[in-house]
Each structure stands twice: as C-alpha cells, then as structure tokens.
Write a protein that binds this DNA or RNA. Structure first.
Length: 801
DNA sequence: CATTCCCGCCACCGG
DNA sequence: CCGGTGGCGGGAATG
C-alpha cells in the first residue's frame, strides 16, 4: 500500500482551490499585471479550477471543513482515509489548471514571464516529473518555450493560432486523414473475424507511414532556444502532442478516438507493430496529453458509441483553424524566423520542420504512400467496374466512401450555457470585446444571434438583410470556408402538411443522450444550469467510420446535412437550448477565402448562393462535393494534395444554382456522386421534375463512381454505428416529415428532405420498422442498396416508375 | 472487470 | 560526472 500522505500538501491544495478570489496562490514570479484588454482574470481561472473539481472532491472538502470546524472528536474517525487527496485531486488536468492559473492567457508582449520549474513544483506541490508533462505539451503548442534548464518563457495563447495552423498544415501534408480512415476501415473489416489476413492490401497500400520520422514543428516567432529544441530523441511527448492535435485539425468530425490516435501515432514510428503493450503505453501518454489539452480547453472528452461499445474519444473544442490561406498572415511572423534555408518565401513552412523528412519541397506527389493510394484506388475502380452489378463490397475501395455516409459527419451542436457565455453569444455584457487574436473572428462570432460554436462544424451565421433572419451555415471544419449569404426566404416555413413538426417536435434530449458525454469537468459546471444545459449537445460522434475518402467524400455530405429550422424569434430560444436556427448547411469546403474575395465567377459557380439563393437556400448550399468544386470550378482554390488525388474521380462539380450552370455542369460533368446532389437540388428548386433527376442515378451506377455508392450502403450498416443512434432520433422526425411532404411536392417543402434522406440512408440496413409509409420506404431502401447516394424518398418514388 | 492515469524508476542527455 | 529530463510501464483508483 502506498502511503497517501506523502506530502501534507493536501490541505493546502484544498485551501487554494477553494478560494477563488484570493491570490493565495503564490504570485507569479513577475509582477502580475493584467493588461487591460486581457480577458484573463485570475479569478476566472480559479473559478474554472474549482468548477473543474469533481463534485466528489468538493464534498470531500466540505466534509473536511466540517470536521475541522466542528470538533476534534470526529476528526480522528474520518480523518483516516477520508482525507486522501483522492486521485482526482492529483490529476494532471487539475494540476494543469493550477499551472495555467498562474499565467495570463495573453501575456502582454512587453514583458515576458518566465517560468521556473523549481518554483512551480514547489508552489504546486508536485513532483517535477509531472510538471514536465505539462510543460512539454504546452511547449508543443508553443505556449511556452524553453530557455534553459529549469527555465521557460511563457507565451500564453498568443501563438496558438499560428501553431494550430501550422499543425493543421503539416497534418494535411501528411496523410493523416487517410490514415485515420484506413484504421477505421480496418476496424470495420476486422469486426467479426479475429484475423486480419486481408489487411495486407491496405497495409501495403498505405505503407502506413514509412518515413515518418518527424521532428518538432516549430514556429517562427517563437524563440525556440537553440538547436536544443530539435535535439533528436526527446520530444517524443511533444511530438506526440502535436500529432495528436493534428489529428483533430485534420479529421472531419473533429473527434478522435484514443484508439485511432494511438494506432496512428504508433504506426508512424514503427511499422505496424501491433504490440499490445506498446499500444497501452501510447494510450497512457495520450491520456496525459489529453488532460493537458483539456485544461486548455482545446478538446474535451466524449465517447463515441459504436456497436462494439463505447470508446473514449476527444473532441476538438478549440478555435477553428483558418484554412491556411497563403501564409499571408503568418508572413509577418515568419519573417522573423531565421531558419537555415534562406528561401525568399517566408512562410511557416520554412520555419517549421516538416514532419516528413522529405527534404526540399515536399510535394504530395513525392509521398509514395499517396501514390500508392491512388493506385489502389484505381485498382478498386477497376474491380468495381468489372463487376458493376454486384453490390459487393470491395474492401479496398471502401476508403472511397464519403465520410458522411459512413459516419455522420455533421453534428448538431448546441452550446452549453457556459459556452454561450464564453462566446458572448448571449447577450453577455462584456464578453465580446476580447482581444482575441484578430484573425479568426471572422468565422466565429458574426452576429450575436447564434453562438458560434466551434465544434466540429463551424457555423456561420448570416444575417439576412431583408428578412432579418439569420441562418446558420455549417461549414466544413476543415479548411476552406465560404462565406456567403443567401436568403432564406420561404424556405424557412415548413410546409403545412409536412413534417415541419418533425424537427421541432423532436425531443432534443433524445438526441443528446446518445452521443457524447462530457467530461466531469464540464459536467460539474453544467449541473447548476442543467435546465439549459441538458439539451445542449446533440453531437454525434462519428469518429469511426467517417471519412473514407478525403474531401471528396465530404462533398457528399450533402446528405446529411441539411437541417432546417424555423427561424422565428423562437428559434433563438430554441437555438440556445436546441439547435441553431436557420439551415445548417454543411458546405464541405468551399472556398476558403473571404466572401469579399470571391470573384464574380466564383460566386457564380460556387458562391453563387447569394444569387440563386432566393430560389432555395438549400440549393445554393447544397453541397456538391466540395472537392470537386474546388478542383473544377475554382481555380483560385487552394488545392491540396488530397484533392488532387481525388480529383480524378470527382468530375464535375455541379456548381448548381444557376440554370446555366446546371446545364453546363450536367453536360460536361460526368456522373458522379455529386450528380445526385445536383438532382436533389434541382428538384428542390423545381427546375427538374422529380422524374428527371432520377436518370442521374443510373448513370452513377454505370460509372465507376457508383461503386462507391454501393459500398457506401454497405458501410453505413456496419461502420457508422455510433451515429446510428443519433440518426435514429433524427430519423423519426424526418420520417414524419417525409411522409407529409411526400404528398405535396412544392419546391419549398423540399427543405426538410435532405435530412430525412440521410437518415433513411443510414437506416437502410435494418430499417427501423415503425414506418407507416411502406412504399416510400422500401423504395428508398432499395435505392440505397443500389448505390444511390441519397435521394429524397420522394424522388425515389418518382424514379421508381 | 474496464477505463483512466498516477507514480516514480531509471535511462539519457546536456552542460 | 551530475542533476535535469522525460520514456515507460506497473498497478492503484475509479467507473
């Protein structure tokens, strides 16, 4: 047995924790002066700390206090074991909070604060070892940097934006996305059979990560002291931390399960070692890192529930990272850096060491793995083509599936009261004017109407000039964001008979329960406000299956995503507790530029939303595969390696919207998943009769692409799992709506459709009984199995005849 | 039992 | 060579 009372510190700790207002904490080494603009408040941190403490701890404290104050008599009795610090009190997370509380989030640039490990350890009463853990991850985020032994400089969150951007970039350059998908897929295949025999293909194809020996990603402005930083060998924790973060930044639903992360991180260093112990260790480390990141509020713990059971995972809650626009922003900083290579191009890249050793310019082209990927894809296609008819699943090709099909990629995110407050979304008095890094505001808090959450999806809220209604558009988290406005118009109104009710009626709670649970920390805070909070989050975690195919797949998201909502004032209320008002439209990634920059052309094609918008918001938004859009339509777009790879498959992006566009696109475009989307849109718009669109599908089937779709159906069954629950709930709602709509095909009504469709899609396999409208259902099912991506049931019906 | 992750041994490394 | 660093994994606490 260990002796708990190693250090009498306990009591002290408690003390510290309980007093929010005082500065009992040892004053930071340097004179603490909080810059006026600085949002940081000593108190706030402490409060958080406290709130973070689990109820148990608090109760314990109380007990203790009682005993103290009361009489000594009892003391003896309970004092025994009662007083134990309890593991939680020693948790790294808590420790980290305390640590962070010592320094301002945004220290004034003028004078730097230094961190002396000795002091810290002493003041926080912890073993040094623990501090290292914290500092290491902070260092990985460039929130601190090491000066010398025992000495660190505190940077606070100033560097965060850049760091994240850099990390994201590196993550993208890497094939993390693919890796994630690969792993997920593997799991899927693995499912029943204990053996992983056929894995070879993928293993080989991906080569997991041959090269990856990565070095620490550095930032320009940060004074990473001397070469020491890169001194080979250590940094493992730091590197791990960075990689971990990258995973979040790169993956579409910004949720990463520990398991996946561990596998990827392991895979990088050593080729496929399924060493069990190693895995365990990795997980341990990840927990350490995760705890720190959680303290920073960059991530939060959730659980993804799969059929197999629920698995621990983490969801990114940090700031959305900009799409990495041409380094523009960074230039200033980068200029400072004095990297060895003296290229004339100032960019983060230069300053940061690339993960992959590939020297010089690292083009994706050079990554053998990528090449392999492409090849394998082609092979798959071939296979598929050869046997088009059979809806057989081809494992190899699975990664082609759009993420949304597999798992859900969209979430309804609602904010907790707390979050709202923080964001200033509500009318919180002073919240807004924070001196946040100037760069990201654009996305996040446009109007105060709906809180922008940065959950997996970044919602944009657009005020509608005319109507005054605002809409929330969910953009694909990953890079590009397009900001455009469109008018909601009639769309908002649910068709009379239709299911408008559907969404509304749905009980938010149901949705919520399903998916994620928050960490204790959060929970603690929420309790008080449970009324509000309860409903909040209905996110789904779809980590698993998710994105098979890179971006293009995302494009397909169309399905999922459209959520319609009533946009009256109520929506506000509702939104707070429930969903944000307006349509939530997932634009996978469109342009990343600002709206302002959108050239006319672009607008027409991609951004056209505004113009076409009137006809139907959905239309505009509806998603064509973003990737396609990018590649095809918009020259300006930044094309990532991934996109390129995919591009072959993706053919025409149907920019949609304008008739002209449509026609042109349809003509030129080869059939591909997007076509379905297109149809969908068209139908909605009323441009195309229901029947018409159908044709598209046939095409799909013949086309290589179709294979994907087929597969998709497959996957949906197994892989998605966790999503299942969510979708279910949603489904119900939708269904009702559908049936209603079904009857009357007026353009406006269509709105709800998408969602419904999606749901049904998921459902496909089992089919949730309950359906009164058999015909429609069966049809849809059928279609799906065939490989149709998603087509509104009604359409299906049409097509049928 | 499973998940979470604290503790601290001890190898390394850099001064 | 010494003391700061920080891999690493047992196994305790917690769920």
């Amino acid at each position: 047995l260990k002796t708990p009372l190693k250090q009498a510190a306990t009591s002290q700790l408690v003390l510290t924790e309980r007093q929010p207002d005082c500065q009992p904490l040892t004053p930071p080494p340097k004179p603490k002066e909080t810059p006026p603009a600085d949002p940081w408040t000593p108190t706030s941190n402490l409060k958080m700390l406290i709130s973070a403490a689990s109820p148990e701890i608090r109760s314990r404290e109380q007990r203790r206090q009682l005993s103290d104050s009361s009489s000594e008599a009892h003391l003896l009795g309970d004092e025994y074991e009662k007083s134990q610090p309890s593991r939680k009190e020693k948790s790294l997370g808590l420790l980290c909070h305390k640590f962070l509380a010592r320094y301002p989030e945004y220290p004034s640039p003028s004078q730097k604060s230094y961190i002396c490990l000795d002091e810290v350890t002493e003041e926080l009463h912890v073993e040094r070892r623990r501090i290292y853990d914290i500092v290491n991850v902070l260092e990985s985020l460039h929130m601190v940097s090491r000066l010398a032994r025992n000495r660190y400089v505190w940077h606070g969150r100033h560097n965060l934006p850049q760091t994240l951007q850099a990390l994201k970039k590196v993550g993208e350059e890497n094939k993390y996305i693919q890796q994630i998908q690969m792993i997920r897929r593997r799991e899927y295949e693995h499912e029943f059979e204990p053996d992983g025999e056929r894995n070879e293909e993928m293993a080989s194809s991906f080569g997991s990560s041959e090269q990856s020996e990565m070095s620490f990603v550095e930032l320009p402005g940060v004074e990473f002291r001397a070469a020491s930083v890169n001194g080979r060998k250590y940094k493992s924790l730091r590197v791990m931390s960075q990689k971990f973060v990258m995973l979040f930044l790169v993956s579409t639903p910004q949720i990463v399960s520990l398991e996946v992360a561990a596998k990827i991180l392991i895979g990088e260093d050593q080729l496929e070692d399924l060493d069990k112990s190693k895995f365990k260790t990795k997980i341990r480390r990840l927990y350490d890192i995760a705890n720190v990141l959680s303290s920073l509020k960059l991530i939060k713990k959730v659980h993804v529930t799969e059929e197999r059971g629920r698995k621990p995972a983490f969801k990114w809650t940090g700031p959305e990272v900009l799409p990495n626009t041409q380094d523009t922003k960074l230039e200033a900083t980068s200029a400072t850096c004095s990297p060895p290579s003296s290229e004339s191009i100032p960019s983060i890249e230069q300053c940061s060491k690339t993960l992959f050793p590939s020297k010089g310019k690292q083009n994706f082209t050079r990554h053998s793995s990528l090449i392999k990927l492409v090849k394998s894809i082609e092979n798959d296609r071939r296979k598929i083509q050869s046997a088009p008819t059979s809806p057989v699943k081809i494992s190899a090709s699975m990664y082609l599936f759009p993420s949304f099909l597999l798992g859900t990629s969209f979430f309804f995110v609602s904010l907790t009261a707390e979050e709202l407050q923080m964001k200033g979304a509500l009318s919180s008095p002073e919240a807004v004017p924070k001196p946040e890094p100037p760069q990201q505001p654009a996305l996040s808090q446009p109007l105060g109407v709906c809180p922008a959450s940065h959950s997996s999806v970044s919602p944009l809220i657009l005020p509608h000039p005319q109507s005054g209604v605002s809409y929330a558009i969910y953009l694909h988290p990953s890079q590009a964001h397009t900001v455009t406005t469109y008018s909601p118009g009639f769309m908002l109104q649910p068709p009379p008979g239709a299911n408008a009710t559907g969404i509304k009626s749905s009980n938010p709670k149901e949705l919520n329960k399903i998916t994620t649970e928050e960490g204790d920390t959060q929970r603690a805070m929420e309790e008080p406000t449970k009324s509000l909070a309860a409903e909040e989050r209905a996110d789904t975690k779809s980590e698993t299956s998710s994105q098979r195919c890179l971006k293009r797949s995302q494009a397909l998201q169309e399905n999922n995503l459209i959520k319609r909502r009533k946009s009256d004032e109520e929506s506000l209320d509702t939104s707070l507790t429930f969903f944000p008002s307006g349509y939530l439209i997932p634009l996978t990634h469109c342009t990343h530029g600002n709206k302002a920059e959108c050239s006319n052309k672009e607008k027409a094609g991609v951004c056209s939303l505004q113009h076409s918008a009137y006809s139907s918001p959905i239309t505009g938004v509806i998603p064509m595969p973003a990737s396609e859009l990018k590649t095809v339509n918009i020259p300006a777009f930044h094309i990532t390696p991934l996109n390129i790879m995919l591009s072959p498959n993706s053919i025409a992006a149907a920019p949609v919207l304008s008739n002209s566009c449509l026609s042109s696109s349809s003509t030129s475009s080869a059939p591909n998943p997007s076509s379905s989307a297109l149809n969908f849109m068209l139908q909605h718009i009323g441009l195309i009769p229901a029947g018409v669109q159908v044709p598209a599908n046939p095409v799909l089937q013949h086309v290589p692409v179709s294979s994907q779709s087929e597969n998709i159906s497959h996957n949906s069954g197994s892989t998605n799992v966790q999503e299942g629950k969510v979708s279910k709930n949603t489904l119900q709602l939708d269904r009702g709506g559908l049936s209603g709509n079904y009857a009357a095909p007026s353009a406006p009504k269509e709105l709800q459709e998408p969602q419904a469709v999606t749901e049904s899609f998921f459902r496909t396999p089992g089919g949730p009984n309950t359906e009164p409208s058999p015909s429609a259902n069966s049809d849809s099912t059928q279609r799906i199995s065939q490989g149709t991506l998603y087509i509104p049931q009604r359409k299906l019906e049409v097509s049928e005849d």
